[in-house]
Every structure is written in structure tokens, then in C-alpha cells.
């Protein structure tokens, strides 16, 4: 029993370390606040440890993405955040292009940020995004199209969105 428990702990630690950056960056993309993103990340992995029955690694990844987005949204549904607005922390990048692109995405609505982040950073297909967010593929495509349109406006057409 102890060996089984330790083995489970080891595998859980590995999974946490493997997907920690992904969860944290997605949470930061959704919350736009480092502290809140850390809290969301911790909450996501706590739920991950309380949940079992994951079959594959892709299943775990999809589950973590979906839970991260849901937790990030639920944070702003609380009574505290309905009355307050968190400070947007300035993240410093070494090049102005990174900064322009990143903050242009951060200025988008949250549902556009999610599909842009998953499509361009996680390299997920439309179908995977649709499955992960439990929305239809046309919705994903629509959100991607509208997000790109806004980004072109913000970035003044300086970047191609291939």
C-alpha cells in the first residue's frame, strides 16, 4: 500500500512538473495577474490529485486545460472580483515585438484569448480546441477569425497569422 501510494505520488509529481508551465501560462493568459494565476494553478493541480481515472496523457492535458479555463473564469465570478478589478501586472519582455504581440493578445476578450493561446501556443487544432473547450468547431473558427481581426487592428497589420 505504501509502495503504491509512493508510486502514485511520483507519477503525480511528474505530471505536475510536466504540465505546470502550460497550466500556469494559460492561467496567466486568462487572468492577466500573476498572483491569481498562481492560485488558479495550485487549485487546478489540487483538483487533479483529487481526481483519478485518467486514461491517457492527452486526456490529462485536455482535462487540465479545461479545468484551468473554468477555474480562471470562476475566479472572476466571485463576489470579491465582482466589485474589484485586479491590477494588471506589466511583464517585461526582452524584445518589443514579443511585448506587442503578448499584450495585444491580453487585450482581447477572454474567450478569444483562450482560442488564440491554444491555437498559436499549444499548437492545438480546431477540433482539439473544440473538444477541449466543449464547444463546436465552427465556434472555434469564428472566435479565431474575430480574434485575428482584432489583433490585426491592434498590431496594425505588422504580423502574419499563419
Amino acid at each position: 500500500m505504501a509502495e503504491e501510494r509512493s508510486r502514485t505520488d511520483v507519477s503525480s509529481d511528474e505530471i505536475i512538473r510536466k504540465y505546470f508551465d502550460m497550466v500556469y501560462r494559460l492561467a496567466l493568459s486568462q487572468t492577466r495577474n500573476v498572483s491569481i494565476a498562481e492560485d488558479v494553478t495550485q487549485d487546478v493541480f489540487l483538483r487533479f490529485l483529487q481526481n483519478d481515472g485518467f486514461e491517457t496523457d492527452e486526456h490529462i492535458k485536455a482535462w487540465l486545460i479545461r479545468v484551468t479555463i473554468n477555474c480562471s473564469r470562476s475566479v472572476f465570478k466571485t463576489a470579491w472580483f465582482r466589485k474589484t478589478i485586479p491590477l494588471e501586472e506589466e511583464i517585461a519582455f526582452d524584445t518589443p515585438e514579443k511585448s506587442d504581440v503578448y499584450f495585444a493578445v491580453q487585450s482581447l476578450p477572454s474567450h478569444y484569448r483562450a482560442v488564440i493561446h491554444l491555437f498559436y501556443y499549444e499548437d492545438m487544432s480546431v477540433k482539439e480546441i473544440a473538444d477541449c473547450l466543449e464547444i463546436s468547431e465552427p465556434t472555434v473558427k469564428t472566435r479565431l477569425h474575430r480574434a485575428r481581426k482584432q489583433l490585426k487592428t491592434k498590431l496594425k497589420g505588422g504580423y502574419d497569422f499563419v
Binding site: S29, L151, Y159, D160, V162
Partner: peptide
Amino acid sequence: MFRKYYKDAN
């Protein structure tokens, strides 16, 4: 280009 800069930024 957007993809590259966005990935680098993240």
C-alpha cells in the same frame, strides 16, 4: 511571425 513572437513571449 505572430505565432513565433507569441510563443517566444510565453
